[in-house]
Write a protein that binds this DNA or RNA. Structure first.
Length: 427
RNA sequence: GGAAGGGUGGCCGAGUGGUUGAAGGCGCACGCUUGGAAAGCGUGUUUACGUGAAAGCGUAACAAGGGUUCGAAUCCCUUUCCUUCCGCCA
């Protein structure tokens, strides 16, 4: 959510930011509503002042025992009533109108964000590791998984429809092993606090992180009006909603391992096979709550924390700085981590780390109390995948596959796998 | 799900229609006092929006939203959260 005062101060800058996202200018529309609202408010307040003064006089007259005078003033105030009711209603409507307009406008990219309309405009920042060499045609993960009879899409489809999977035996365990490895690294080496959070949340929680109102069709809604979280970012970030934290406690670094639910409404026909795009997948999420001064550097740190997982697993990847047109709604700057998938012969997104500035904080009313100075300021929020567990499983399968159809378990995962060193080696 | 009782400022806690934005206490800040400290004394201590160069002024806010009234923290309705008891339950 944008600050209308900031737009008032610099409408041209605001419109220029929108233009980088491929959007038409909106400042004049917004400022017209804002001006109308302020006029209304001023008139309303003048009427309220008059009512307050007269009401006080009624009290005084009553005390003095001057009944006729009191009645006369009462009649005078009664005449203001229509104007008051209308003014209050008008103020409510115009404020609603302004908020509605503001709540569907995306965040403004930082200056350093590259220009571009879509993923072709993204810029590679760095690369780690190397593509593994195969002297045969490497298979895609679902071929590997189905041949081993550890991955079953048909059974999942029978009970839930497309875009679900059943994992079995060592494959199910590897899912869990990967998540545990991630949590252990983030909580011990990276200083994140592990959280267990609600996976069903309210409208205003979804509004806070900006899934609502604009992206309702991408989400699953329960019959009692709650929403299944599409990412633990929603729950973790909203832990500070409507609260004031101490500056000394910042940055807050939170992590959670949760299932994520996405309707994938706009993805018909894309990634229909395999585990790349599912209605349900698990993810270890990273969230930081910082001061405005800390947030930019925190993004580098967070991205590094996510990279540490890929490095521990020995997976080749590249870091992409997203261009303005490819960034998510709430982001000011995003790094995507793309892991190499030999079976697909392509880099695929496995993590997305974003700094949102005060965009979500305003929606949630999340503030902090500075150590020095008066008042409160909005916090900055960041979120990143650390990492998507399902896609990490995919990457492990494709990168560690052997010619005989088995899969070598990466060294760091062996302890989490109860000592198993190879999938397919056990009868 | 049923019954009962509650939600007041950073905290505790008064307050059932008229200078109550809100007594009192605690905490905190500043000052006085002191060799220094404690105690004591004094002053101050919410937020949002509007307006103004600023000082300031205005409006709103006593869980949230509506209503009654000239006037509401105080009365009515709805929602929500908490506590206790009962029921159900992993």
């Amino acid at each position: 959510m944008h600050d209308i005062k900031a737009i008032r101060d610099n409408p041209a800058g605001f419109d220029a930011g929108l233009a980088r996202r491929g959007l038409a200018p909106l400042s004049s529309t917004l400022l017209a509503i804002d001006g109308e609202r302020r006029d209304l408010l001023q008139k309303l307040q003048e009427t309220q002042t008059k009512r307050n003064e007269l009401s006080k006089q009624v009290g005084d007259a009553m005390k003095a025992g001057d009944k006729p005078r009191a009645e006369a003033i009462k009649a005078e105030v009664a005449a203001l009533k229509d104007a008051l009711t209308q003014g209050e209603e008008g103020e409510r409507l115009i404020t609603q109108k302004l908020n509605d307009a503001l709540s569907v406008i995306p965040n403004i990219p930082l200056d350093e964000v590259p220009d571009g309309a879509d993923e072709h405009g993204n810029v590679e920042v760095r690369r780690w590791g190397e593509k593994p060499a195969f002297n045969w045609e490497p298979r895609q993960h679902f071929v590997i998984g189905e041949r081993l009879k550890l991955m079953d899409f048909e059974t999942a489809a029978k009970m839930a429809g497309a875009r679900f999977v059943v994992l079995k035996k060592q494959m199910a365990r590897m899912e869990r092993a990967i998540a545990n490895l991630m949590l252990d690294i983030h909580t011990s080496a990276n200083g994140y606090t592990e959280c267990y959070v609600p996976m069903l949340v309210s409208d205003k929680t979804m509004f806070g992180t900006a899934q609502l109102p604009k992206f309702a069709e991408d989400q699953f809604r329960t019959t009692d009006g709650r929403w299944l979280i599409p990412t633990a970012e929603v729950s973790l970030t909203n832990t500070v909603r409507e609260s004031v934290v101490e500056e000394a406690d910042l940055p807050l670094r939170l992590t959670a391992y949760t299932p994520c639910f996405r309707a994938e409404a706009g993805a018909a026909g894309r990634d229909t096979r395999g585990m790349i795009r599912q209605h349900q997948f698990s993810k270890v999420e990273l969230v930081s709550i910082t001061t405005p001064e800390q947030s930019r550097a925190e993004l580098e740190r967070m991205t590094g924390c996510a990279e540490a997982i890929l490095q521990a697993l020995g997976l080749h990847y590249r870091v992409m700085k997203l261009c303005a047109g490819d960034m998510g709604f709430g982001s000011r700057l995003t790094y995507d981590l793309e892991v190499w998938l030999p079976g697909q012969n392509a880099f695929r997104e496995i993590s997305s780390c974003s700094v949102c500035g005060d965009f979500q904080a305003r929606r949630m009313d999340a503030r902090y109390k500075p150590t020095e100075g008066k008042g409160t300021r909005f916090v900055h929020t960041l979120n990143g995948s650390g990492l998507a567990v399902g896609r990490t499983l995919v990457a492990v399968l494709e990168n560690y596959q052997n010619a005989d159809g088995s899969v070598t378990v990466p060294d760091v995962l062996v302890p989490y796998m109860g000592g198993i060193t190879k999938l397919g080696a056990v009868k």
